[in-house]
Amino acid sequence: MSSTFLNKELPIILIFATGVIMIASYFVSAPEIYLDPLASNLSQAASLVAAYATILGIVTLAIIHINHVVKRTKGQWIYSIVALALALLMIVVGFIGELGTHPYFIWLYQYPLIALDTTIYSLLAFYIVSAAFRAFKVRSVEALILVVAGIFVMLMNAPVGAAIWSGFPTIGNWIMSVPNSSGFRGFIIGAAIGAIAIGLRVLLGKEKGVLGRS
């Protein structure tokens, strides 16, 4: 078999066949040709591949950090040791008893990990206030509309809004339900049409990016 067939034609045939089965099973029910079980098996296979991809991710991360430690990358290698040690700790503790259910694992997740993760997430509040002060300037009519809409929606979300004036939640809800919804709907429809176009190009073998660099 030629390398062109193995590298290009066979993957395109597989992509086309898989794509047609999945699309057909979404729109039609055909028990005579076992379409649903076939599509279901393909979905489960994809789920398995994704699970293995997680392992690949861990391996890649480990390689990157081991390289930093070996090369003593300035300003990085100490953090790489911390990352590797903590990843190893979570993996080892996760394997004690039933996978990921041991109280030690839950403790590690509940106390250090959640506290660290939520701290990072909460920092956003400070950046948002600082950035709003510096960048949210009324330089044009559009910026003015944005600022006014933003303030109404913020006062709709916080109970203080309704306490100041009962109109804030009403107007805020209208902004969310009408202009916001219609704007997002436009994005969603545009993105969906784009996805259909890209999907068709991939199925027909016109989009070669999915085949990799070779």
Binding site: F133, V147, A158
Partner: peptide, 24 residues
């Protein structure tokens, strides 16, 4: 946490308004 949320939103709005007053 709702009162804290209200306070955070008010601080943000005050800073937005203050930033715009200074800008103008």
């Amino acid at each position: 946490s709702m009162d804290a949320l209200s306070a955070g939103h008010i601080v943000t709005i005050v800073f937005i308004l203050l930033g715009n007053i200074v800008f103008v």
